[in-house]
């Protein structure tokens, strides 16, 4: 069975928000129609987005890490948001594991959003239906797009390639490999939701310096010394042995 997902590499995400607005622009004119914004030019502008990038500080100065943390629907394998939906508008696709909302069925009761521990659903305040990341289902299967572009909008946009897209059930896929080899982890594993999206942790590269590397024979300072020609007066082994 296929389970499509994003794997997000916190090791390289610089928090640029490209994934946020590329998602917005792709989806606002997409099959589901607009993603509304309130007070767009007034106090407290607020709108519907499928993807947000947050920032956390970890540790105390000067040992501080700044972590940028992109967050969209995790397409849980056991999504608590789905069974609670009274209308069946929320559903998980058998074929590829994408969790979607059928906007024609949704009554806007918001119950599914309560049932998502991750805060990944947003109601559209004007269409009054629940919305969330669709994993760009309208791109990834669109055969009218060039093959290389059949990827989520945010994945294509991301300047650092921090967003990997693929089938986490296929052990050979890039995403599975990344999860395996780079310690990919799910969010809030305690709830047994089995998020399909995974996150890759920070990794550190360090340089080790050995003492002798600082005192090597080819040190150019040696060339600056004015050297006297060197000869030895007394006897040496050269005078008494032969091999």
């Amino acid at each position: 069975m296929t389970q499509l997902a994003l794997v997000i590499d916190l090791n390289v995400c610089v928090g640029c928000h490209a994934c946020v607005t590329s998602c917005k622009q792709w989806n606002t004119s997409g099959p589901a129609g607009y993603m509304s914004d309130d007070n767009p030019y007034d106090k407290d502008p607020t709108g519907t987005f499928f993807n947000r990038v947050q920032t956390f500080e970890v540790g105390n100065y000067p040992n501080t890490e700044t972590v940028h943390f992109p967050k969209s629907c995790l397409h849980c394998e056991d999504p608590p948001c789905v069974p609670v939906c009274p209308t069946g508008a929320s559903y998980k696709r058998e074929s590829d594991g994408i969790v979607l909302v059928d906007y024609d069925k949704c009554i806007g009761c918001k119950y599914c959003s309560w049932a998502c521990p991750y805060g990944m659903r947003e109601i559209d305040e004007h269409q009054k239906v629940m919305k969330k990341c669709t994993l760009c289902v309208d791109r990834i299967y669109d055969t009218s797009l060039p093959e290389a572009e059949r990827k989520p909008a945010c994945v294509m946009a991301c300047p650092t390639n921090a967003r990997l897209f693929g089938d986490v059930h296929d052990p050979e896929s890039e995403v599975s490999l990344a999860i395996r080899e780079r310690g990919g982890y799910p969010l809030m594993p305690e709830w047994g939701t089995k998020p399909a999206n995974h996150y890759l942790p920070r990794r550190k590269t360090r340089i080790t310096i050995h003492e002798d590397e600082l005192t090597r024979a080819d040190n150019p300072l040696k060339k600056e010394r004015k050297q006297a020609p060197h000869t030895i007066e007394g006897p040496t082994l050269d005078d008494s042995t032969m091999w």
Binding site: S29, G33, Y34, S36, D37, D38, P40
Partner: peptide, 15 residues
Amino acid sequence: PSWLAWFAGGRKGHR
């Protein structure tokens, strides 16, 4: 506008 519903061209406001 007091709120925005950007949808480019196409069947505007089709839903």
